[in-house]
């Protein structure tokens, strides 16, 4: 896949998304543990795992762009 260096904006979006996913992992887990309805518990439990993999995907995206990033500010 065609890769370009991350823009400052993209980096901000990825960082914001990581914090959103982190919150959702915790929210889904807390919800699943305190919920008394079995169907909702099951959905939340599963979604907590999906958010974990989304978090990892965002981290991987950062890692893939590390090598392309300049170390000095560009004009």
């Amino acid at each position: 896949m065609n890769m370009k260096p991350l823009s400052a904006k993209e980096l901000e979006y990825i960082a914001d998304s990581l914090s959103n996913e982190d919150l959702l992992i915790k929210q889904c887990t807390a919800g699943a543990l305190s919920c008394t309805n079995p169907q909702i518990t099951q959905v939340l439990m599963h979604q907590a795992q999906v958010h974990q993999s989304q978090y990892q995907a965002l981290l991987n995206c950062l890692q893939q762009h590390q090598a392309l990033a300049p170390t000095q500010p560009q004009g």
């Binding site: 890769m3 260096p5 823009s7 990825i14």
Partner: peptide, 22 residues
């Protein structure tokens, strides 16, 4: 809320692989 944010992030991405990820 997060769905909206991913939509915004995708439309404002420069790198094709980042856009695809979002």
């Amino acid at each position: 809320r997060v769905t909206r944010e991913y939509g915004t992030a995708a439309t404002e991405s420069v790198c094709p692989s980042v856009r695809q990820q979002f």
